[in-house]
Design a protein around this nucleic acid. Structure first.
Ligand SMILES: [Zn+2]
Length: 429
DNA sequence: CGTTTTTGACCCGCGC
DNA sequence: GCGCGGGTCAAAAACG
């Protein structure tokens, strides 16, 4: 299960979904206990809102690849793969989490596809031959030779085509990545400047750039009391519940990064590398399935929480919403998740701004939130520093980040185009 | 015995 | 002010 890259788990593809709240969704998941018969090693599959059904089922063979985006591959290698490969077709694989597996993954994947292609061709040839058996043998041999040549050529052509496709993909991904990277850097700089000026108080600047996100945020933050839950302790003290001075901070807290992930998983909870303690369960209205609340117990005082709920319509879909940033170091597997979260959010954010296609589902756009503030929510001293670090970290993992970016973008775009069914949205939490 | 889960009570924001 | 719903607390139970 464990990957060399640090993914201890097999992540499955994820899809970004969005919920009502301006939340970003993206997360890899992997199912911890797969006792289930269906999916051996990885139960979680992505079910993107829009993901096409067929793609969703991933072959167990793929477990090694961290993340697969359905859309991604769909677009790129569709024509190529025969229907029967649908199942194996790994939709796209990007690793969100794995840091250096990109290449490996790609290669592997590539291999798979090409193999499939070969097999097909081969088969065809054989069939022809066999059918001809009744005919003259000499003719047969000639044909055979010809067929082989033809097959090989066809193969070559296909591979070339595939190659081209991949190149284009790569180029595009790279471009997107660069764009976003730049964007992100600029944002970071701005943030830092602001911090310096404001003496640590963070200005919700980032949101400004986010466009839609701003509106969304405003909605959330303004009405709600500044204190938020994270500050609950303070309130107990009996002090003013709303220390105006800290408003910025509290707001920031409010904006904790929130990422929701949807994954197909039979397991009751996805394993993300962290330890969680359940602290509550409620019946969500309009959904027969209860919602469970968990808190991170990897470190005392870690503010990270998550809610887990099954989709009412399709109970195989597990919706997990993460909130906040960890105040401690995470194990490799968890790291990948965490960075994914933030990076994913960022990706979407920057992607929404920079990407030309307004096609991205409005849903996705709205989602972009991701305040860097999450850390600040923790209230610790490093608020800013952490934030920056987090961002940096995400970027640092260039390869994966780039890949992830590409994947995210691609998947988003793909989803908006292919659109199968947005169905899942319906039951946002 | 320490940790986690269960579960009803409680808090809080929100709409009426 | 009241009821509702989401989220959290915390005592008791369950686990290992
Ligand atoms: Zn944590």
């Amino acid at each position: 299960m464990a990957k060399t890259s640090g993914l201890s788990i097999d992540f499955d593809p994820n899809y970004f979904l969005i919920h009502n709240p301006p939340v970003l969704n993206s997360f890899p998941e992997y199912t911890p206990k797969d006792t289930n018969k269906n999916n051996n090693n990885n139960n979680t599959m992505f079910s993107g809102t829009t993901t096409t059904p067929e793609n969703m089922s991933l072959p167990s063979t793929v477990d090694r690849f961290p993340v697969k985006f359905d859309c991604f591959y769909d677009q790129t290698r569709p024509s190529f793969l025969p229907s029967d490969d649908d199942k194996r077709r790994v939709v796209g694989e990007l690793d969100f989490f794995a840091e250096k597996n990109d290449k490996l993954v790609d290669d592997a994947d590539f291999m798979h596809t090409s193999d499939a292609g070969l097999e097909l061709n081969v088969n065809i040839g054989l069939n022809l031959l066999t059918t001809n058996t009744s005919a003259d043998q000499s003719t047969m041999e000639d044909k055979k030779a010809n067929n082989e040549v033809a097959v090989l050529r066809a193969k070559l052509v296909q591979m070339n085509a595939e190659n081209e496709r991949l190149k284009e993909m790569l180029i595009q991904a790279t471009e997107n990545y660069n764009t976003m990277k730049i964007h992100l850097c600029s944002l970071k700089e701005e943030d830092e400047e602001n911090k310096k000026r404001n003496g640590g108080i963070i200005v919700p600047r980032q949101f400004i750039d986010l466009g839609l996100a701003v509106a969304a945020e405003a909605d959330e933050s303004s009405p709600s009391s500044p204190e938020g839950k994270s500050q609950r302790e303070d309130s107990s003290g009996g002090d003013n519940k709303v220390p105006r001075l800290d408003v910025d901070q509290s707001e920031a807290a409010m904006r904790k990064a929130r990422v929701s992930v949807r994954a197909r998983s039979e397991a009751p909870m996805i394993t993300d590398g962290c330890q969680w303690r359940k602290y509550g369960q409620k019946m969500a209205k309009g959904n027969p399935c209860p919602r469970a609340y968990y808190r991170c117990t990897m470190a005392t005082g870690c503010p990270v929480r998550k809610q887990v709920q099954r989709c009412a319509e399709d109970r195989t879909i597990l919706i997990t919403t993460y909130e906040g940033n960890h105040n401690h170091t995470l194990p490799p597997s968890a790291m990948s998740m965490a960075s994914t979260t933030s990076s994913a959010a960022r990706m979407l954010v920057s992607g929404s701004t920079s990407s030309p296609d307004g096609l991205m589902n409005s849903n996705l756009l709205t989602t972009t939130l991701l305040p860097c503030s999450s850390t600040m929510a923790t209230g610790e001293q490093n608020s800013i520093g952490d934030t920056v670090n987090a961002a940096t970290g995400a970027i640092a993992t260039d390869p994966s980040f780039a890949a992830a970016l590409a994947a995210a973008i691609t998947s988003i775009i793909a989803s908006s185009q292919s659109h199968p069914n947005n169905g899942h949205n319906s039951n946002a939490m």
